[in-house]
Nucleic acid binder design. Structure first.
Lengths: 189, 189
DNA sequence: GGGTTCAACCTAGGGATGTTAGGAAGCGCC
DNA sequence: GGCGCTTCCTAACATCCCTAGGTTGAACCC
């Protein structure tokens, strides 16, 4: 019987796609093995187990996300940058729900430190603030506010938390506008 | 052998406590049965299955949460009400992580409609806005912004999303201040 | 008190999953 | 062609959810 030609990277990429299709919480070694035409026990050659696979998918998703956010902010500043960042953020959350859910998997500090994408996301957030007039510790407070709002909205949207019969698109716009206003007025709040 | 004297309500309450201890996603029928000194199959007398148990825990958590949020807002208005609401929200998320995670379980529309707490939370959110000058559809946008920010911050805090060496307490205060400012200036944003 | 009935709890077992241990065989390299 | 590493396999076990059917505690009725 021929080899399936699995590599850890191919396995993790396929797992991320599978997670987008069926949800990160439903990602299972059995389903992933079936996709490669292989027994589930065979996956242990490439991955230490389910927890290891989940962490790798999380790190992949964080890296891809960081690139997408970085590219969105590139060459923009102020409100333009904020809108581009927000739209890239939400596009990831709604277009790749499995990957997005994976980003919230608690990765070990060592793995996070060894993955450039993790620090890059925070870095991009700080770059976003350069168009506004913020120094530490206000910048950290502002970054936390940005992430909280974006993450909260995306998460509530993804899990069906919003039920009112009103456009999510305009609510999202209003939220971004409100953040812009807050960042502009930060010292006067 | 004597009966354990289990009732559905006692079972769900114990499940909520167990979820707070080991995490909602680790809540298992086997662990719950062990807590009552009973076989897992015996729980099917009181509950239709794991999904049913999870939904009941979610509804219990939502009800308790609604009461807590309602009590916090009671007799206050404007900024006072906002701060009290925010602190009650965060206290639930950090003090009862299992229950908080349960509130994000997708409950069926019928069960949600039959549980007063679900509607009560939205109602309390709208009551919060009475101190500010907002009409529809702005009120819905504002409620969504409030929930997004509170949920996002709580969720990132609970899952270890904040790593910077800076007080979470002051970041939370600043976020609430920013929301107050946003609600006050809503028509001028 | 004795019988009836309901419901709580049990044992047994099947299917799915994660995981480990050890064996067979493809594929590269000499 | 032969050696060896790596991939993939089978076998087996533990845990979990869930179903089917049996046993027994406890309340109720006479």
């Amino acid at each position: 019987m021929p080899r399936a030609g699995i590599t850890p990277d191919a396995l993790v990429a396929a797992a991320a796609d599978l997670a987008d299709e069926i949800g990160f919480e439903n990602l299972t070694l059995a389903a992933l093995a079936k996709r490669f035409g292989v027994r589930d026990a065979s996956l242990y050659t490439h991955v230490r187990g389910l927890a290891d696979l989940q962490e790798r998918v999380a790190l992949l998703a964080l890296t891809e996300w960081a690139e997408s956010l970085g590219a969105a902010v590139e060459g923009r500043s102020g409100r333009d940058a904020l809108v581009a960042f927000a739209d890239a953020y939400r596009a990831m959350a709604t277009g790749h729900p499995g990957r997005y859910a994976a980003t919230r998997f608690p990765v070990s500090p060592e793995a996070a430190a060894a993955t450039p994408g993790v620090a890059r996301i925070i870095e991009v957030c700080y770059a976003l603030l350069r168009g506004y007039d913020l120094d530490e510790p206000a910048a950290t407070d502002a970054v936390r506010l940005l992430r909280s709002t974006f993450h909260g909205f995306s998460d509530l949207e993804a899990t069906g938390g919003f039920t009112a019969d009103h456009s999510l698109e305009t609510s999202w716009r209003r939220a971004v506008d409100a953040l812009h206003h807050t960042l502009t007025d930060w010292s006067r709040i």
